[in-house]
Computed example of a mutant assay.
Amino acid sequence: MALVETSRVREVLAAQIGIIREFAGKLDASGDLRVLEAEIAELDAALGELKRELKAIPHRQE
């Protein structure tokens, strides 16, 4: 992979990881369970997107 491609891939992954960190930071077990459930659903969706992005990157998978 060329340096530009590698840089862009890292940028995309970093952005998705930032979204996941933001959602994870909102998690609060002492709050309303419906809100917690919604936040976990958002986190799950963001993790799913990160997994899809990782699978799309040509790299060694063992």
Rank of each mutant, 00 (worst) to 15 (best):
A2D: 14
A2Y: 08
A2Q: 10
A2V: 11
L3Q: 14
L3I: 12
V4D: 10
T6Y: 14
T6W: 13
T6P: 01
R8Q: 09
R8P: 00
V9I: 15
V9G: 03
R10I: 13
E11V: 06
V12Y: 02
V12A: 10
V12G: 02
V12M: 08
L13A: 06
L13C: 05
L13I: 12
L13Q: 09
A14T: 10
A14K: 08
A14G: 12
I17K: 09
I17E: 12
G18Q: 02
G18D: 05
I19R: 03
I19G: 00
R21W: 00
A24M: 06
A24W: 04
A24I: 00
K26R: 15
D28F: 10
A29M: 15
A29S: 15
G31K: 10
L33N: 14
R34K: 13
R34D: 15
V35K: 13
V35H: 09
L36E: 06
L36R: 10
E37I: 04
A38G: 13
A38Y: 07
A38V: 06
A38I: 03
E39M: 11
E39Y: 07
A41P: 01
E42T: 03
L43N: 03
L43F: 00
D44N: 12
D44K: 15
D44Y: 13
D44A: 14
A45F: 04
A46H: 01
L47R: 14
L47T: 06
L47E: 11
G48H: 05
E49K: 12
E49D: 09
E49Q: 11
L50V: 02
L50R: 09
K51N: 03
K51T: 02
K51Q: 05
K51I: 00
R52A: 15
R52W: 00
R52N: 02
K55V: 01
K55Y: 02
K55Q: 06
A56Q: 06
A56N: 09
I57Q: 10
I57A: 05
I57G: 02
H59W: 03
R60F: 05
Q61W: 00
E62N: 07
E62L: 10
